[in-house]
Amino acid sequence: MKTIGKWVFSPLFFLSFIFAAINIIDRTLSPAWLIPLLLLAVVVSFATEKWLPYEKVWNTPRGDLVRDIVHAVVNEGTLIITVAMIPIMTTIVPHFSVWPHQWPILLQLGFAVIVADFGITMAHYISHKNDVLWRLHAVHHSVKRMYGFNGLLKHPLHQAIELSAGTFPLLLIGMPLEIGALLGFSAAIQLLLQHSNVDMRIGALKYVWAVAPGHRHHHIKDGIKGNVNFGLFTHFWDHLLGTFVIDSSKHPSPCDGDLGIDSQPNYPKGYMVQLIEPFRSKI
């Protein structure tokens, strides 16, 4: 049963929650209904990590759970506010009304995901090259264990930068509120999977889908070995950038003790301290 669970979890988790979200929007229900759906996804994600752990020790908090919850609430709350402001932003920001409203919602969402994936991946990639951006991004890399909430652990300023890079082109062509809400929801679901402690098996999908088996390599504490697999939704841009790796003898899958920031093994753990650390530290 566990073997089957390892193979079906990630596609079933992603597709079931995405289609549930699309169904909510398709029935013209308020995007606010996506919030309890996301909370359910978090519960399912955590329960599956307990059932099928990649590293059992990563399921045990290390004085980081409350901090991670605060990061998640602040960042997701900011995202919700941003999505709610889409109608205002499309009024203020000059844009071209060329959004394909006639497409089915699934295709509109797919288009938004592709555009956002490029922008966010490139912002992520540049954040590993630029010292100022890296200081902000380092908050995310300070984790010593990987589990679902890690994807929501970001400095608010860095999240704003990635969010802008991913959504500004979409706003320029008139992305509607409903698709913006679905895109934000899809990103949250993807981040849960990308940082999951589930021992998931995805076969050939590992070459294109940027979930935990590939993304764990990105969190290796070695600054050089960790400069790989930047993609949010896909590895497509990593293939073009030459930054894609998979599990191999040259790139073994990381385990406990392999994560963090080599140059700052004692990176601050508290939420408020992490907010100010980028402004007083040179990494």
Rank of each mutant, 00 (worst) to 15 (best):
L34W: 13
P36C: 04
P36E: 05
L37A: 10
L37V: 12
L38Q: 06
L39M: 10
L39G: 05
A41W: 12
V42P: 09
F46V: 09
A47P: 00
T48Q: 00
T48V: 01
E49F: 06
E49A: 03
K50M: 07
Y54F: 15
K56Y: 00
V57P: 06
W58L: 01
W58M: 02
N59Q: 10
P61E: 05
P61D: 04
P61V: 07
R62L: 06
G63I: 10
D64L: 03
L65K: 12
R67Y: 13
R67G: 03
D68L: 02
V70F: 08
H71Y: 00
V74R: 01
N75Y: 03
N75Q: 07
G77I: 03
I80V: 14
I81D: 08
I81G: 08
T82F: 15
V83D: 11
V83N: 10
P87T: 06
P87A: 04
P87R: 09
I88G: 03
I88T: 13
T90K: 07
V93E: 06
F96Q: 09
S97D: 15
V98Q: 07
V98H: 07
H101V: 13
W103T: 09
W103Q: 13
P104C: 11
I105Q: 15
I105K: 15
L106G: 09
L106P: 05
L109D: 11
F111I: 10
F111H: 10
A112P: 04
A112L: 08
V113L: 14
I114K: 04
V115D: 12
D117F: 11
I120A: 11
A123N: 08
A123C: 06
H124L: 14
Y125Q: 00
H128G: 08
H128E: 11
D131L: 13
L133E: 10
L133C: 10
L133S: 05
W134P: 00
R135Q: 09
V139A: 10
H140T: 11
H140L: 07
H140C: 01
S142P: 01
V143M: 07
V143K: 06
R145S: 12
Y147S: 03
G148W: 09
G148N: 06
N150M: 03
G151C: 00
G151L: 06
G151T: 01
K154V: 13
K154G: 07
P156C: 06
H158L: 12
Q159R: 08
S164W: 13
A165R: 13
A165D: 15
A165Q: 13
G166E: 15
G166L: 15
G166A: 14
T167S: 03
F168Q: 02
P169G: 05
L171E: 01
L171C: 00
L171D: 01
L172A: 08
I173S: 02
G174R: 08
M175E: 01
